[in-house]
Design a protein around this nucleic acid. Structure first.
Lengths: 209, 209
DNA sequence: GTCTATAATTTGATAGAC
DNA sequence: GTCTATCAAATTATAGAC
């Protein structure tokens, strides 16, 4: 809010308008399903400018995808505040994952789809991203089990379950909304907050029931 | 196995070869990302034949999508064997969902993506499919709660969690495999059987812990 | 940097021989 | 029913004016 904060100035550059538009279109339609024309229209500029800033469709896609993957893996492995007790840390982790998913609901499907079509997109990049990561959530859990703080369990399976419970409700929201509205008479609304609560309940019951 | 069974004869018709190829390509690339050329190649036939059997790309896609949606909703709501106790029924349900997902791992993403791009695909068809359905899983759970057989809970939320735990591991398999292999030293393999077991554990803990 | 015009490919679809 | 040849439209990409 200070006058020195230069967000208004740096926000509306053409390159950023293109990147934002590309993000939107690529996330929805994927690499092969997207049209440069659509991206230009969404950005409110001319097609030729896309090629001026990014040589080709593939280059533009690569830029968008790299950014997305980086952001995704970063939040997936962000397990900070090592001073806090494990339950608190897990709760914070779920909070972070949910804020991330509320901002980018289609991020997981985007990554998953594009990787399934083009596996080298993943292989080429993951190892690089690994380097600047700290200790992983799995290793933390393993240590807590050794210490006896939480129940013995398959930590990888726990992580799979946890992310399933967080991500899928966002990506399957349109389907769930329809099915639930039809079958569940007193179903109020599709609420991320309620879903988040149920994830935390799952954690609590898994760690020690 | 009887000689009267005519499966060999009816299997390799051109129309079926096209439909199988279309299923494969559309599921992977979506409507806009798929190329008729690819479908023809996958089917091992000529492009022109696609238009001979199905008027247009849209018609062909519609056929594939309708079939997929029907199959998906059918298994999502198949909750038979009403004579069995509720825990047994839920276990069978999970078994069915897993066999379905092992056969069609990308089915959920396919439906979800195409519906998010083209919402009327869903709206136009779901109501029709609803008609021949029996009682839904949610209504069964509500009744069991009334009877006191299971703990009081938000049944819609339970269904969301349940499907998240089943579907997401299949669709995110490539990602999980990579991340786990890197972070989890003694991680053997990505096993659907183990994941299924954890889903059943979730059910047990949720119904009454 | 941004636009218009246009080239070069790709892609959905059809006509017509067999 | 199946194929080859081909058209028309769409799509990526570039050239050149401003």
């Amino acid at each position: 809010m200070k006058p020195s904060c230069k967000m208004a100035k740096s926000k509306d550059t053409t390159e950023e308008k293109i990147l934002n538009a590309a993000k939107e279109v690529f996330m929805k339609y994927g690499l092969y399903g997207s049209r440069m024309h659509d991206i230009a229209d969404t950005a409110g500029i001319n097609k030729a400018l896309l090629h001026y800033y990014f040589r080709s469709k593939e280059k533009l896609f690569d830029t968008v995808f790299s950014g997305a993957l980086h952001k995704y893996l970063q939040q997936m492995d962000a397990f900070l505040d090592s001073s806090l007790p494990i339950r608190q840390r897990l709760n914070n982790y779920v909070d972070n994952v949910f804020s991330f998913l509320e901002e980018y609901p289609q991020m997981p499907v985007f990554i998953i789809k594009e990787v399934s079509i083009n596996p080298e997109l993943f292989r080429d990049r993951v190892d690089v991203l690994k380097k600047d990561k700290g200790i992983s959530i799995i290793q933390v859990l393993e240590k807590e089990i050794e210490l006896g703080t939480i129940r013995k369990m398959d930590t990888a399976l726990f992580l799979i379950n946890l992310h399933s419970l967080c991500s899928y409700p966002f990506l399957a929201a349109p389907i769930f909304k329809h099915v639930l509205k039809a079958n569940h008479k007193n179903w109020e609304e599709y609420s991320p907050a309620k879903i988040k609560q149920s994830v935390k309940q799952f954690i609590e019951r898994t760690l020690l029931s």
